[in-house]
Amino acid sequence: MSAAQHTRFASPVTLLRDWSERSDQQALHEALFLGFTVDLPFLEKVAIPVARGLGARTAVIGDAAQGLYDPVDVRMAGRSYLHGLASPFRFEWLSWGDGGGLVRSAPGR
């Protein structure tokens, strides 16, 4: 089992691009985005397509009271990725399956 080690904060998009540039070309199986204020329109336009393009099943979990989106702007939730709401939590992580590694992601984007 291997785990990715990052010594700096990075956006989910940067981490996904780093994954795609791995020399071993290992498939990405899962991508889990957790956050206090989840920007679903941003994730739908930028991060989720990259994760799905790498072959990942994708889920986004956010704080039920802190959504920063209009439901009209969110078209892929429940169809292209799993969206869930929870409360309360105050951290942000991006996790994906290369044997269970967990990587800290920067707050916000």
Rank of each mutant, 00 (worst) to 15 (best):
M1C: 11
M1I: 13
S2H: 13
A3Y: 11
H6I: 11
T7R: 13
T7H: 14
R8L: 10
F9L: 13
A10G: 06
A10L: 08
P12E: 03
T14S: 14
T14D: 13
R17K: 14
D18N: 12
W19K: 08
W19L: 13
R22T: 01
Q25G: 13
Q25L: 13
Q25N: 14
H29R: 15
F33S: 06
F36G: 07
T37E: 15
L40Q: 00
P41G: 00
F42R: 15
L43A: 02
V46F: 07
I48D: 05
V50Q: 08
V50W: 04
A51Y: 01
R52Y: 00
R52I: 04
R57L: 11
T58V: 06
T58N: 01
T58L: 02
A59I: 02
D63P: 03
A65L: 10
A65E: 11
Q66H: 15
Q66S: 14
G67F: 05
G67D: 10
Y69M: 07
P71V: 04
V72I: 09
D73W: 00
R75Q: 15
M76Q: 15
A77L: 01
Y81M: 05
Y81W: 00
Y81T: 00
L82P: 05
H83Y: 15
G84T: 04
G84P: 05
P88N: 09
P88G: 06
F89A: 06
F89H: 12
F89T: 04
R90F: 12
F91M: 06
W96K: 08
G97T: 15
G99K: 04
G99H: 02
G99F: 00
G99Y: 03
G100E: 02
L102W: 07
L102N: 11
V103T: 07
V103Q: 10
V103N: 06
R104E: 12
G108M: 02
R109A: 13
